[in-house]
Amino acid sequence: MLTVVIVVVVLLLLGLLFALFFNRLVRLRNETEAGWANIDVQLKRRNDLIPNLVEAVKGYAAHERTVFEEVTQARAAVAGAGGPAATAAASDALSGALGRLFAVAEAYPQLRASENFQELQSELTDTEDKIAAARRYYNSVVQTYNTAIQSFPAVLYAGLLGFRPRQFFSADEPEKAVPQVSVS
């Protein structure tokens, strides 16, 4: 009789412990998904700003065709990229292309003086900052989540329950420095 009680109590405790571990994994996974959604929002916002920016620059510097093409292609690559690592690489390429577009714009004082352009420029700088912020959050929660599912005891059952490690939002190594676009 006593043995039965002990066994039941131990099983209940184990069940409770498992539930706690499981819930923690679910919470962490949800955080990585929310983090990814944050990045996505900012990437979309930047992509939405670009056509207007290209139009604004074209109005003053229509012959700088290479840089427009580069930006347009990089923008399409970001929209079409699948998975965090590929998206990060495309996003970095777009940041670089935008940096060159702004460098070109430097040569046109009238363009720089235009209010529309200044506004777009500040919006874009802000969005780049927000992408960097969302990226820091996402990478830090992914780090926590990946560590959690690869540690004991979760490593025994995380895979079976469908918890897969997530990619960092980073072109190659995790936590690579974010390229700063100089737009001022």
């Binding site: 955080e31 929310a34 944050n38 900052d129 927000k130 912020a133 969302a134 820091r136 959050y137 929660v141």
Partner: peptide, 12 residues
């Protein structure tokens, strides 16, 4: 305001 926004995003 933007700084507060950015830091909130970075903190999730």
């Amino acid at each position: 305001y933007r700084i507060v926004e950015n830091m909130s995003i970075a903190a999730g």
